[in-house]
Every structure is written in structure tokens, then in C-alpha cells.
Design a protein around this nucleic acid. Structure first.
Length: 139
DNA sequence: TAGGCCATCTGGTCCT
DNA sequence: AGGACCAGATGGCCTA
């Protein structure tokens, strides 16, 4: 497999060619990792809120502010709050991946045998934007 | 089997 | 006070 980011020569690319028609993405494969978001959204995070507590950390291992030497307030959360935070984080990562999928569809690729990884997508997008900018500036 | 990629969990920090 | 964001750790899956 060639190095997609470093080997792609955009000067050889022309708009409206098949190059600009990226292969269908695999946004739903990934071993079912894009699980049913409806179930995630259906979860009622609000119920996870309760009489939670912050605690002023008093242990010796408590973090210390980088700027000041005073002990920092350490957040102590219940397991229910932790679960709610996990759900929020999953939703956040899901929306991030959706954005990556949208970007993948905008970035021209060769008939690629596999989906671009996130880092490949970003690098290719950078190159593509630079290429298009160059075209605009030279016209 | 090693390395790459990804999802998930987790705790810390920032922001409202 | 709590949600958003971030980065590190971990484990699973896939491919060369």
C-alpha cells in the first residue's frame, strides 16, 4: 500500500474525475463499533445526577495547581455520575467520528481499498486544501 | 506476532 | 457544580 498522504500528487488530479469520487465510506462497519446511538441517546443522564459531592482533596497524592502551590479541589464523583460521563464521552466521540466521516467524503481519494484512517484523513485534507488554495491563487 | 487503528474508560482541566 | 474537552491507558480487531 502506498503512503497515501505523501505519495498523492494532486497536481495530477483534475476536478470532476473519478478521483474525486471517494469510495463509499464504511461509517457503519468497524466491527459494529458505531453502536446504536438511539440507545445511547435514550439513556437518561439526568437521573445520574444526585447528591454528588466535591471533596477538597486532603491526601498527599492530591494534585497541586501548576500555577499556585495550593491544593486543588479534586472532583469526587459517584459511580452513577461516572457512568453518565462515560455516556457523554461516547456521544462526543461519536459526533467527532461523524465529522471525520463527512471530511472523508470531501477529500478526494483514489479507489482506495480501505477507508482512510483519521490521521490519514486529516493529512490528506491539509494537502487538498493547500492544493486548492494554490489553484485559486494562480488564477 | 508486531504494529496500526479504534472504541471505551478514566481522571484532570477548562469553561459556563 | 457540572458539562465539555483532552490525553493516557487498555484491550480488541485486523493486516502484513
Amino acid at each position: 500500500m502506498f503512503d497515501l498522504v505523501s505519495d498523492v500528487d494532486f497536481m495530477e488530479m483534475m476536478p470532476n474525475t473519478s478521483v474525486l469520487a471517494p469510495k463509499e465510506t464504511h461509517s457503519t462497519d468497524c466491527n459494529g463499533l458505531y453502536q446504536d446511538l438511539t440507545s445511547i441517546h435514550a439513556l437518561d443522564i439526568s437521573t445520574a445526577r444526585s447528591n454528588d459531592f466535591y471533596a477538597l482533596s486532603s491526601s498527599t497524592a492530591s494534585p497541586v495547581s501548576a500555577s499556585a502551590g495550593k491544593p486543588k479541589r479534586k472532583r469526587v464523583i459517584s459511580s452513577i455520575q461516572r457512568q453518565a460521563a462515560n455516556i457523554r464521552e461516547r456521544k462526543r466521540m461519536f459526533s467527532l467520528n461523524e465529522a471525520f466521516d463527512r471530511l472523508r467524503r470531501k477529500v478526494p481519494t483514489f479507489a482506495y481499498e480501505k477507508r482512510l484512517s483519521r490521521i490519514e484523513t486529516l493529512r490528506l485534507a491539509i494537502i487538498y486544501i493547500a492544493f486548492m488554495t494554490d489553484i485559486l491563487e494562480n488564477n
